[in-house]
């Protein structure tokens, strides 16, 4: 195992897949000469040249469509959005073109492509640059939606995403790029659609994904001091969701908190709760509680931003509530 950052893990996934398959290319704003707005593509232009690492104009809808067209006729594009906030401009190509092409064509045109980039809030970037989009994208049949929370998952899932014959939405955590973790040195893939038990526990399950995995782990550490044993289920893939893993855990702990970065209404957590009530109705000892961003656009002021975001303190409060400790 090598220790590397989430960013380095992504870069090495891209490098390995670019080297493995000439049909793979990376396209997006500032990915080549600038080495990536978040440096995920650092060094790739030098290594693979401008045919494979393609700088685009600021034209999200346009280059997302270029990716769709290239995928239709046999290439395997990796389309980078500088952030998913900008990808809203491209949603017609993601939702109306990529997600439906196979179905509309009766199975004739596959869409082997990845749309990737940082998702969610960072620090004080204001309302337009601080949004988590997974519930929007996971709503769409025909897409796969991945949200890696650790360097090892980032690498294994990105490699699987690039090799997948379907359009994969790959949501990276903007605040995760500098986080470090152990990453296997050999070539490895992580199965899409498979959740990961990040921590075993007995008293309460926290179901989460993406950036919030770190928060859940902190919460588990903190509560362990009070002899509360938390199980952390990292969904990793939002669509298709690993219902079995969620059910197995909740059937064991009989309690669940669902933690996500996005907003409450129609959020990912709403879907998780639905699966839990269907699969674990008789196993529950308490209603499931959700932790999420407050139902407001993200404010700029430090104190307000902190108040808007889900965090460890809010999650601990939720766990204590489902355990009837408060």
């Amino acid at each position: 195992m090598a220790v590397m950052t989430y960013r380095e893990a992504l870069t090495s996934a891209l490098r390995e897949e670019l080297a493995r398959d000439d049909r793979v290319f990376l396209m997006g704003e500032e990915v080549a000469q600038y080495n990536g707005a978040y440096k995920v593509s650092k060094g790739l232009l030098d290594e693979f040249g401008p045919r494979r690492i393609v700088d685009t104009p600021i034209t999200e809808l346009g280059f997302a469509g270029v990716g769709v067209g290239a995928a239709m006729v046999g290439l395997r594009p990796v389309v980078e959005f500088m952030t998913w906030n900008f990808a809203l401009l491209a949603l017609d190509e993601v939702v109306n073109a990529a997600a439906k092409m196979l179905y509309m064509s009766g199975g004739q045109y596959k869409m082997p492509m990845v749309f990737r980039g940082p998702n969610g809030s960072a620090l004080q970037l204001g309302a337009q640059h601080s949004q988590a989009w997974e519930s929007w994208l996971a709503h769409i049949p025909g897409l796969k939606v991945l949200t890696p929370g650790t360097p090892a998952d980032a690498k294994g899932l990105l490699k699987s995403a690039i090799r997948d014959d379907n359009p994969v939405v790959f949501l990276e955590g903007e605040m995760l790029y500098n986080t470090k973790g152990e990453v296997p040195e050999e070539d490895y893939l992580i199965r899409i659609g498979k959740a990961d038990l990040k921590r075993e526990g007995e008293h309460c399950t926290i179901v989460t994904h993406g950036k919030m995995v770190l928060v859940a782990m902190q919460v588990a550490d903190a509560l362990a001091k009070d002899d509360i044993s938390i199980e952390v289920v990292d969904l990793r893939t939002i669509r298709p969701m690993d219902v079995e893993a969620i059910a197995q855990s909740v059937q064991k702990t009989n309690r669940a908190v669902v933690l996500e970065e996005g907003w409450e209404i129609c959020g990912v957590g709403a879907q998780v709760v639905d699966f839990i009530q269907r699969e674990c109705f008789d196993d529950l000892d308490a209603p499931v509680i959700r932790v999420h961003q407050e139902d407001v656009p993200m404010p700029y002021a430090k104190n307000l931003e902190k108040a808007a975001k889900p965090d460890a303190a809010k999650t601990i409060a939720a766990v204590r509530k489902v355990m009837y400790l408060d």
Binding site: G65, G69, A70, A97
Partner: peptide
């Protein structure tokens, strides 16, 4: 919506 897709097909031809 399909006009950028056509550009992508052109991109792939050239690629």
């Amino acid at each position: 919506g399909h006009v950028p897709v056509a550009a992508g097909v052109g991109f792939a031809i050239k690629y």
